[in-house]
Design a protein around this nucleic acid. Sequence first.
DNA 1: AGATGATTTTAGACAAGTCTAAACCTGTTT
DNA 2: AAACAGGTTTAGACTTGTCTAAAATCATCT
Lengths: 224, 224
Amino acid sequence: MTEQPLTRSEENYLKAVYSLSGNTDKGVSTSDLATRLETKASSVTDMVQKLAEKNLLHYRKYQGAKLTPGGKAAAIQIVRKHRLWEVFLHEKLGFAWDEVHDIAEQLEHIKSEELILRLERFLGHPKYDPHGDPIPDPDGRIQARRSMPVSEMKPGMEGVITGVRDSSSSFLQYLDKQQLVLGTRISVVEVFDYDQSVQIETADNRITLSFDVSKNIKVQVENG
Amino acid sequence: MTEQPLTRSEENYLKAVYSLSGNTDKGVSTSDLATRLETKASSVTDMVQKLAEKNLLHYRKYQGAKLTPGGKAAAIQIVRKHRLWEVFLHEKLGFAWDEVHDIAEQLEHIKSEELILRLERFLGHPKYDPHGDPIPDPDGRIQARRSMPVSEMKPGMEGVITGVRDSSSSFLQYLDKQQLVLGTRISVVEVFDYDQSVQIETADNRITLSFDVSKNIKVQVENG
DNA sequence: AGATGATTTTAGACAAGTCTAAACCTGTTT
DNA sequence: AAACAGGTTTAGACTTGTCTAAAATCATCT
């Protein structure tokens, strides 16, 4: 029951289970974890059993893994560190939003509670990371934002881009090229039945987004 | 001959050999390395042989380890990262100078050339870390400072504290209590033959330093 | 229900880095 | 020169996290 220090690998597994769980209450499958962690299913089974021993997740053979409250808390702390470091890299060091992830992936494993508290203060207690994802507070509370993907908006609806569902370099660079950054105000002009693509309007442009792209842009819509 | 990525452990060994070599051209003994790295002599032998295979150091049985040019360059890069992170922790996050070492010990292993270049720029290209040690430039050049320990100063000599030889928490906290920080101007009033203790004068105080303490404070003396 | 195919687990192996215990050098003393 | 004490290396073992290959289980379709 006491707080044991986690290895880098254990932390990565907890984070993966957390992010693959989403809001659901279902177990995460071995193969999904293997894909996410770029490892083999057998390795996942081993590690998941080990983490179950430590009471960080529930595990029954063939049923997948589900975080315990303790495991979830640990995962959220790692997410918190990751996102704070991303803010640092972007705001202070000037990295582009598609460059911050890999380095934050390393920085999130640095062990020091005090470091993160001071970093958070230094950054001015940011609420969101450069991709628009919320930063958990020191106690692990997450303030979610009400937003919907562009693909679900109807013609005439307006809102502000608050985040992305895909943080891959190529997608983020595409958005940069289209001048679609966090905070951009957009309105939906038309949705084409044919291929579900969406025409939107910004202050400067009209742009047509493929269905795939429109699913990956999150917008906070004005409640009129 | 190509640049292979180093493990955390390998980096720590190179750094230890580098720092234990000082200016001498002698090999560093297995047991000195074991003490520094808080490990056993047999482990050191294993690793030192491995690093010799990789041409990062020269090693002959029973003769100790000596860095090759490539090993030295790698060691200096780690030192550079360590000291830049120390500046960040002290200047930007407000950690005391005795608190920065352990966290920098972790941060120094983050892999990203670009990160360090940007961090250096962000910090305003500092020349020295919070303990007064010089920060190597991106090419590994180190600008040493002419300084001497207080223990070698004669009565009447004056200078400015530029560094410490001992970065232990207890020593640094002692200096804080005596209000002896980097940049403090001091002059030597008297050296007591009896126990080699030194009486010094600052703008505000007269303080007597034990021989042990006086050996560990580095001063840049005015050449009159 | 039985067969098929995909997923998952087990078993055994490996590399890295460490350890203990035993064997081995080296330098100095007698 | 022999003996001793220290330091050093070797040999063998352990842990962590990974892998491959084989066995087990689950899901689905006929």
